[in-house]
Amino acid sequence: MQSSPNSSPQKLIIRTIAAWLVALILFFPLLFLAFTAFKTEGQAIAVPSLWVFTPTLENFVEVQERSNYMHFAWNSIVTSVVSTILGLLIAAPAAYSMAFSPTKRTKDILMWMLSTKMMPAVGALVPIYVMAQWAHLLDTKFILIIVFTMSNLPIMVWMLYTHFKDIPHEILEASRMDGATLWDEFRHVLLPLGMGGLASTGLLCLVLAWNEAFWALNLGSANAGTLATLVASYSSPEGLFWAKLSAASLMAIAPIIVFGWFSQKQLVQGMTFGAVK
């Protein structure tokens, strides 16, 4: 690279070692979890911890037998994907009009939306629970989808707004001059230019919905339980079933972590909320 003082050989070596050390320390708990998932229960609590052992798949088999993994995984997939799509459909038009036809109140509306997100979910728990019970929606995927959509909506509007604001107005105006209808404008200008923003917003909300635990624990249990509730059901036995707990945890987080690894570049762009110009 360029000849900045940072690239002298000794400094590069020190920097490399330090960076790897920090990364490995932060990643270590996950590595440990992954290893434990392939141990027997006896090996799992061995002191000092074992790093060389014959891996076993019995924990995964037992988790699957005890609590039909696919059922929970399917619930997680459906609730997170549907709530993300629904959220994008509601948030995108709002973000579009805030970005391209701002009024004096646009900022206030945006701040108000964000403030609804600051209210602790537990504050809305009782009313939402009562309403869900009244509508016979407790423990259905439907209610989880609604709740996930609504709790992610403020973040979605904000993210999309910052993205849309970066699209040059001139392009839209030019297309309008050429007599483009709103549909043309949407299809040929907004969608291609806003695709990055839509994708990164969708990705982040997918992750947030997948990991949502509060509403999933309180509104869904047997029928609509997501992977977050599956894992919580392994919390009661006091430390004696580390291997099974690890297997269940690994099965719950692996899909979203792998998904995150592959989409990290896109995801990061979205998460900066326009902080990087």
Partner: peptide, 28 residues
């Protein structure tokens, strides 16, 4: 490696630290 913990759901995060990291006898 650095980005990974962000994708871990809070329940897994909590159980992982409670048992495997912070257990006073067997924990790391």
């Amino acid at each position: 490696l650095l980005i990974s913990p962000f994708f871990v759901m809070p329940t897994v995060n909590a159980l992982l630290w409670k048992h495997m990291m912070m257990n006073p006898v067997y924990g790391v």
